[in-house]
Structure formats: C-alpha cells, structure tokens
Design a protein around this nucleic acid. Structure first.
Length: 473
DNA sequence: TTTTGAGTTGTTCGA
DNA sequence: GTCGAACAACTCAAA
C-alpha cells in the first residue's frame, strides 16, 4: 500500500487540507512537523507560543483518530530522508509556503526526493489564488492593489470541497520528539494574557470565524476602523498558521450573501481585506528582494535616523501620544494590534521618529502572534511610503486626531493606558496640553505618571516632509 | 507606442 | 464648526 509523508508547515488543520486529502486518497499517511532551529529567519517569540498550542491541537486531532503526528527537529531534508528510510514511504506531499527562503528550500527538497523516485507534490493550502495566476495584460505582476484584486476576483473559483477519504496512519511505531522539549513557551510568563484572547488551532479558528459572522460582519465596513469595537474577524493568526481554509471561508460568505443580500457590501469589504493578504503574498513572491530592500528604489537614499531611546519608548508604549501607546501596549498584552492602530504606530515610527521601517518590522515580527513575512513586509513598506501602492509621502497621520476620530469616547485608550483613565475625553488624546487642575484632578503628573510627547507633532511632520523632499529630487 | 485615467486607509489651512 | 482645496507629481494598467 502506498505511504505518503504529509509535511505540515503553515497548514495546521485537518479540514480541507489539500496535501492531506490527496495523500489520504493514495493510501497510508505519515504526518510530520519539522522544527528547524537553523532556519534563516527565526520565528518570533509570540509566534512560538502560538505554534506550540497549534501543534498541540493538531496532534490531538490526529490522536483522536488513532494517528500520531510526528514531531522532529533538524534540517528538513535530513529529517525527511530518515523518515523515508524508516517507513518506506513512496510519496511526499505538502502545501506551499511563499517566503523566498522557504521556496528555495522546498524546491531543493522536491528535486532531491523526486530523484530518489518518490512522488513529490505540493498544493495550494493557504491562498485564494496562486501568485503566478494573476498577471496584468503584459504578463507582468501587478504592482497596484485595485487592479490586482479586480483581476483576482475574476479568477477565484472554489468548486465543491474535495471529500477526504478515511485517514489511515502508518502501522509501525515511529519516534517523535515531545512538544515540550522544543521549549516554545516563554520561561517568564509574559504570555499569560494570551490565553484569554486566543485559542490556537482549528477549533479556535472556527469559533472566531463563527463569532465574526454572528457579531462582526454586519457592521464590518462601518466598524472595522474602530479599535474598541469587535468588528474585525480576529482571524489573522489562524490564517497565518493555516488553521482554517480559505475556500471554506469563501463558500460560507457566498452562501450567506445569497441568504442575506443586505450583507453583500460588508462581505465584499471583508473579502477585499483578504485580498490584501493575497496581494502581499503576490508581492513577496514576485519581488522577493523587498524583504530587506525598498520596493521603490528612491527610498535607498531616505535619511533614516537612529535614536535608540525613541525606539524603546515606541516599543514600550511610552511615546506620550496615548493612541500610539495604547496600540503598542495592546500588542504586548494580546499579541495583536487593531489594523487601524497598526497604521498609526507605523506612521509614527517611520515619519515622526524617522526610524527605519525595518526596526518596526523586527519588533512586530517578534511580538505579533500573527507575524507573517509577506504581510509584515508589505505593511511596513506601505506605511513608510517605500512600498507598492504606498501611502503618498504627505499622508502623515496625526496621532492625536486619529485617536479622536477612531476612538471617539476614549474606551480603547483607557483600556490600554489605564493611568489616563480618569482624564476627561477632551484631553485624553493629548494630556500634555491639559490644564494643571484637570491633570491634578485625574491624578496625573506629566513626566512621572505618563510621559510628555517624545517629539512635537508639528516639528516632526515638517521634518518628515522635508526628508521626503530630499529623496524626490 | 502612445495616451489616458486612476490611484486603501490624511492633514492642514483658510474661507 | 464645516467644507473644499492643496499637498505633487508619478507610476501603473489598460485601451
């Protein structure tokens, strides 16, 4: 009977998992997750927390059907070579990743095992559409989102779901590491708050999606920009780790749209946000050098500054701009940040502080549970102005005004910057200009209980504008 | 090849 | 307080 190794990577689910389905149709399956400590871009600390729990969930799903998920660490090619030898497997299937380093690694492994006579196949398990399937009239990759998504929507079709054959595991006993041995969980418990917000794994992913359909979707378009509302899907980490299938999401949305036409606008908007995820993966696939170089070459000459104390203040949520600080603290406590606030803090770091977007990217990479190379790179380059379809240089977010606009009653700021919670809303966004008496009444001493702004908005704005003038020439 | 229209997410200023 | 204009050209995509 044919035996297929199913190599799990960013597709930690049983449902609608193409590699798994195709392997099961072939015969016995041998599921494995490989931890590669030598990988070039090390997974961040928050992501490791997620990975631990997601693997635990996947492992449980398999053991419930009497199959064991093998965990091993080492170079994937070596680990897989050993496993082929031990099991006599004649097939090796996986779902694709799109990061440049991983593509190179996978290509090498594919040709190696093909040479050995194995049937090696890869599948699309995490995108609506493959990056090479959406090209403009000249056969070139799109560099602008809107035409990209228009073209992509024409091509995205999800036929009925493939039926999964009964999953049959390998007969013999195989060695596996213990998940705990990998020590993914932090030693000091800065992760304690994560548990109340998240349940990594397939079940948690579906719970979030159902909750979104129930409570968030009907106010998505109008409410998605307000960080205090629960109008977004909270699916980003689940999507990154492939715990929920996009075809299943898509079909569910289409079904809903048929039953409740009044939801169509919200559904289209939500799909278009998934579209940004698609676009970002498209960009990293076609322009892999943008991982560490500006998409727009002129930005090579941008006069980035260096100020470690400013970077630290930003990271710790101590910039003196409450809306920015709220976001940075939300990130630290929950491992995520609302999309609107991500834009504001990114604009603040790159434009107000003139700190290189790579510094922000690095911090997000380490602290975000949904850290995803394609999204992180594209998002930061967009905010800095160096990216594809980026914000025009004169679009510099006013961190005070953004708070007033998108957190109008101040609930978001009060939750994450509790030392300001007694300030009247009028002064909440800019406590440095509040009258002494008001501050006293609220029990705040500026500079002691809460920092003065680390830069002056007007000065910073003008400085950024002139920096952009410089590279325009 | 040339032309034309369009382009995620804002802010500030002055009437 | 509200509203429209200016900010600045440039690049992309498609006809």
């Amino acid at each position: 009977m044919p035996k297929t190794i199913v190599w799990f990577r960013q597709d930690l689910r049983l449902q609608d998992n193409p590699a798994l389905i195709k392997a099961a149709a072939r015969g016995q399956i041998i599921p494995i997750y490989i931890w590669d400590p030598s990988q070039t871009r090390k997974i961040g600390a928050a992501s490791k927390w997620w990975l631990h729990h997601s693997l635990q969930a996947l492992s449980k799903s398999f053991s419930d059907i009497n199959i064991s998920l093998i965990l091993r660490s080492g170079h994937p090619e070596q680990v897989l070579t050993d496993l082929v030898q031990e099991t006599g497997a004649d097939g090796l299937f996986w779902n694709r990743c799109y990061e440049p380093d991983l593509i190179a690694r996978d290509q090498k492994i594919k040709s190696h095992f093909k040479d050995q006579g194995l049937q090696v196949e890869s599948f699309n398990g995490s995108l609506c559409i493959e990056p090479w399937e959406v090209l403009n009239g000249q056969g070139l990759p799109y560099k602008v989102y809107s035409p990209f998504w228009r073209a992509a929507l024409q091509k995205i079709h999800f036929p009925n779901q493939d039926k999964t054959s009964e999953l049959i595991g390998h007969d013999g006993k195989l060695e596996s590491d213990q998940l705990e041995d990998w020590q993914f969980l932090p030693k000091i418990n800065w992760d304690k708050d994560f548990y109340e917000h998240w349940q990594p794994g397939e079940e948690g992913a579906w719970q979030k999606f159902e909750a979104f359909l129930e409570n968030g979707l009907s106010q998505y378009k109008a409410g998605r920009d307000f960080p205090d509302l629960k109008a977004t899907s909270f699916l980003s980490p689940h999507l990154h780790f492939g715990e929920i299938s996009l075809p299943m999401i898509w079909r569910r949305l289409d079904m809903l749209s048929d039953i409740k036409p009044e939801l169509q606008t919200n559904i289209a908007k939500f799909k278009s946000e998934l579209g940004w995820r698609e676009f970002n993966h498209h960009l990293i696939y076609h322009f892999p050098e943008t991982v560490d170089q500006p998409f727009r070459g002129a930005f090579e000459a941008f006069p980035w500054g260096e100020d470690d104390s400013h970077l630290t203040a930003w990271q710790q949520g101590m910039t003196g701009y409450p809306f920015v600080d709220a976001g940075m603290r939300e990130l630290w406590h929950t491992g995520t940040m609302h999309n609107r606030v991500r834009m504001v803090v990114a604009s603040f770091l790159t434009k107000h502080l003139l700190i290189h977007w790579k510094e922000g990217e690095k911090w997000f990479w380490d602290t975000l549970l949904d850290a995803d190379l394609a999204n992180n790179i594209a998002g930061w380059q967009w905010a800095a102005g160096s990216g594809a379809d980026a914000a025009p240089y004169f679009r510099i977010f006013n961190p005070t005004a953004q708070g007033q606009k998108f957190d109008p009653d101040g609930a978001y700021i009060r939750r994450w910057v509790p030392e300001l919670k007694n300030l009247p809303t009028k002064y909440l966004y800019e406590p440095s200009v509040a009258p002494k008496s008001i501050l006293e009444e609220a029990g705040i001493k500026m500079g002691t209980d809460y920092p003065m702004p680390i830069v002056d908005h007007k000065m910073a704005r003008e400085r950024a504008l002139s920096a952009y003038q410089q590279i325009k020439k």
